[in-house]
């Protein structure tokens, strides 16, 4: 086995091992590893930066959504309030008008009733006179006696009262 026979190459192999390993160590420690470390760190920062940004944007979107919903709710509440107010107003106005109308109507009815009453009592007066005249004429013609005016009125009043 050359590994145990070529003893004279041992020093040379160890020498070159140390030299080449030393060179590689230097290159790794000074160039390759710092570069790799910075690349990985940069990526790490970038990725977490992006994630943070996305999370912040999400937060903002959520806030906007909350605001929007609040605005909607507010608008709805104020619309309901406005609606109620106008409904109340309408109700009040129509009630007032109704009341005015009622008043007017009852006044007219009153006037009409008064007129009717007046006409009736006038008519009654006329009927009484006529009845008196008829009764006077009838008694004078049939009985040939004159009845006093007072008696006549009394009898007519009684007859009319019975009718009423």
């Amino acid at each position: 086995m050359p590994q145990f026979e070529q003893i004279d190459t041992f020093v040379g192999q160890i020498f070159w091992l140390i030299v080449t390993f030393g060179v590689l160590y230097f290159l790794m420690a000074k160039v390759a590893l710092p570069r790799l470390a910075s690349i990985l760190e940069e990526r790490e920062n970038r990725v977490s930066g992006d994630l943070e940004k996305a999370e912040r944007l999400k937060q903002e979107a959520e806030e906007v959504l909350t605001d929007y919903q609040k605005a909607i709710a507010d608008a709805r509440a104020s619309a309901v309030a406005a609606l109620k107010e106008s409904a109340d107003e309408i109700a009040a106005t129509s009630a007032k008008r109704q009341a005015a109308f009622d008043a007017q109507l009852s006044e007219k009815v009153q006037i009409a009733e008064d007129k009717i009453n007046a006409a009736r009592s006038e008519a009654m007066g006329h009927i009484k006179n006529v009845a008196k005249d008829v009764a006077a004429a009838a008694t004078s013609k049939l009985l040939d006696t004159d009845v006093t005016d007072a008696k006549l009125s009394k009898a007519v009043d009684e007859a009319l009262g019975e009718q009423n």
Binding site: G12, W16, T20, L27
Partner: peptide, 19 residues
């Protein structure tokens, strides 16, 4: 004797390729 041998060559090659 620190002759540059095939062993040293491949050590150097390893360094070169890693780099």
């Amino acid at each position: 004797d620190i002759s540059f041998t095939n062993s040293a060559l491949f050590m150097s090659l390893s360094v070169l390729l890693v780099t």
